[in-house]
Simulated assay, not measured.
Amino acid sequence: MVKLNNFYHPDELREGLSDFVDRNNNQRCHESLNNLTPADVYFGRGDAILKRREEIKKQTLKQRKNQYLNQKLIVL
């Protein structure tokens, strides 16, 4: 990202680097960290996030199964 932009003043470069580091550490999920941000892992929020994701996944699968079964009942 930094190489693609032209910076004409050192302050612009500092701001661009700061934005890059912020996005990389606080917003962008990393596959090697189980799709968590480095900040989530560093501050110990990773386990809670992964647990919540697993709950959402179970609820979604249950909901889809119910929708499928209801659709089959309507067709029959």
Rank of each mutant, 00 (worst) to 15 (best):
F7E: 03
Q71V: 03
V2I: 15
R45C: 00
Q59S: 12
N24P: 00
Q59E: 15
E55R: 07
L50Y: 02
I74W: 06
S18D: 06
G44C: 04
I56M: 06
D47H: 07
L69A: 06
L76W: 09
V2H: 01
N66S: 14
I56K: 06
I56H: 04
V41Q: 04
V41W: 06
S18Y: 03
K65V: 09
L61V: 07
S32V: 14
N5I: 09
N35R: 14
R23K: 14
K3A: 11
L69V: 14
M1Y: 03
V75G: 00
I56N: 05
N35Q: 14
L50V: 04
Q27F: 12
C29E: 12
D40S: 13
F20G: 04
R45M: 05
L13Y: 08
K51P: 00
H9C: 06
R45N: 05
L13N: 01
L17N: 08
A39W: 04
E15A: 05
Y42S: 09
L33N: 02
V75Q: 12
L17R: 07
K65I: 12
N70D: 15
E31F: 08
A39V: 07
Q63E: 15
N70K: 15
N26A: 02
K62Q: 14
G46L: 08
N34G: 07
K3I: 07
T37G: 04
D22S: 11
T60I: 13
L61R: 10
R28D: 13
D22C: 07
L33W: 06
R23N: 12
R52Q: 09
K58C: 05
F20V: 08
L76I: 13
D22R: 11
N25A: 01
E31K: 12
N70S: 15
Y68P: 00
K65E: 15
I56L: 10
D22V: 11
N25I: 00
L73K: 15
L50Q: 03
T60P: 01
R14C: 09
K65F: 12
E15D: 06
Y8D: 10
L69E: 15
D47M: 04
D11E: 12
V41G: 03
N70Y: 08
P38E: 08
L17I: 14
K58V: 15
H9R: 06
F20H: 13
N70A: 15
N70G: 14
